[in-house]
Simulated assay, not measured.
Amino acid sequence: MSTEQHVAPRGAQEPELFENPGLEEHRGRLADTDPRAAKRNERIIALILLISALASIGAIVAYVAIPLDDTRESVRYSTLFLGLGLGVGMLGIGVAAIHWSKTLMSNVEYVEERHPQRSDDETRQVAGDMMRHGVEDSGIGRRPLLKGAAVGAVALAPLPYLVPFVGNLGGDWNTGAFRHTIWGETPEEFSGTLPDGTRARRLARDPDDTPIRASDVTIGSVFHVIPHGLNEEEHFYEEKAKAVVLMVRMDPDILKEPAEKADWSYNGIVAYSKICTHVGCPVALYEQQTHHLLCPCHQSTFDMTDQAKVVFGPAKRPLPQLPIAVDDEGYLVARADFDEPIGPSYWERLT
């Protein structure tokens, strides 16, 4: 079999491999020739936009009517109906726009040859005429029903995003919810007794809520921790979002503890808030060899051997430390709440 290929002489014109078939013959639609079909499609589009508008209103009603601070069910239902309203509202606008373009707008193909970036004045005039023709062809001027429905749906669609945002503004950042967590509460059934007789909240595994004995924590082990009994709290999601802790045991000789915090750890066991001090992402990637704790969102890195100080990344503050001890039954307990607000820095908590 010969592998010789034909090569055209330099300067010779290459033959065309394929004949340009041109554009297919335009096929008209029923709405192009039947006014009743066009009117029917107009009503369908208006109905879809109406559904979109009602869904947006429904999302706002769900946000206002369903409280977020009573039970887990209220959080679930609020999230469900708010999400459905947002989704249906935006989906309706998209579906209506597609149906509008496919049934009422021109479906004629236009071909424009490529030209230099700055076209001549005549071509620019033609392009402007084509754009005006497209606007006229859409029928927006002579279809007030569609115009009103489209404006209403588009105007209402952003409100489910804006209303929760504006509604959640405010509150006391410095002395309120961010400064205190459930670690400071010591109900008897979820607490242990320290040698001085005081009650202290027990540390438990997340999510099964099993209390943790100090003897079960080996060097190099990592525990995701919540306050014991947290699952029984009415405001479970809110309290857990603030109280989650990462606990690690290291060689006590490598810990750098100031004198005022010398009793905040127990035999090399230290516990720090899992909420990054940058923007609040969960800090849960522990590097056993370097003893660094990494935030997966923006790579802020904290040194667990040195009071969780920042060694890399955009975070500006160390992770708040939870002071721990062991009760009279050998369980790890929190001697007190965090001594500073958890979470990101904000305008009243910049350092």
Rank of each mutant, 00 (worst) to 15 (best):
S56K: 02
I57N: 05
I57T: 12
A59S: 15
A59W: 07
V61A: 07
V61G: 00
V61Q: 00
A62F: 05
A62I: 01
A62M: 05
A62G: 05
Y63H: 04
Y63T: 00
I66C: 03
D70W: 12
T71F: 02
R72K: 04
E73D: 15
S74L: 00
V75H: 02
Y77L: 08
S78K: 08
T79A: 15
L82C: 10
L84M: 13
L84E: 00
L84S: 02
L86R: 07
G87R: 05
G89F: 06
G89T: 06
M90F: 08
L91C: 08
L91K: 01
I93T: 11
A96D: 03
A97M: 13
A97Y: 08
I98C: 06
I98N: 06
I98W: 14
W100G: 00
K102L: 12
T103R: 10
T103V: 02
L104E: 04
L104P: 03
S106N: 05
S106Q: 05
S106W: 01
S106A: 10
Y110K: 15
Y110A: 11
V111K: 07
V111F: 10
E113S: 10
R114K: 13
R114A: 13
H115T: 12
H115M: 09
R118S: 12
R118I: 15
R118Y: 15
S119D: 07
E122W: 07
T123E: 15
R124K: 03
R124I: 06
A127E: 11
A127V: 10
D129G: 12
D129M: 08
M131P: 00
M131V: 13
R132C: 00
H133R: 12
E136C: 04
E136T: 11
E136N: 14
D137C: 04
D137F: 03
G141L: 13
L145I: 05
L146W: 01
K147R: 15
K147L: 13
K147D: 00
G148Q: 08
G148K: 07
A149P: 01
V151Q: 07
V151D: 01
A153V: 05
A153L: 09
A153F: 08
A157P: 05
A157L: 15
P158Q: 14
L159R: 09
L159F: 15
P160Q: 04
P164V: 06
F165N: 11
V166W: 11
N168G: 10
L169W: 04
L169D: 01
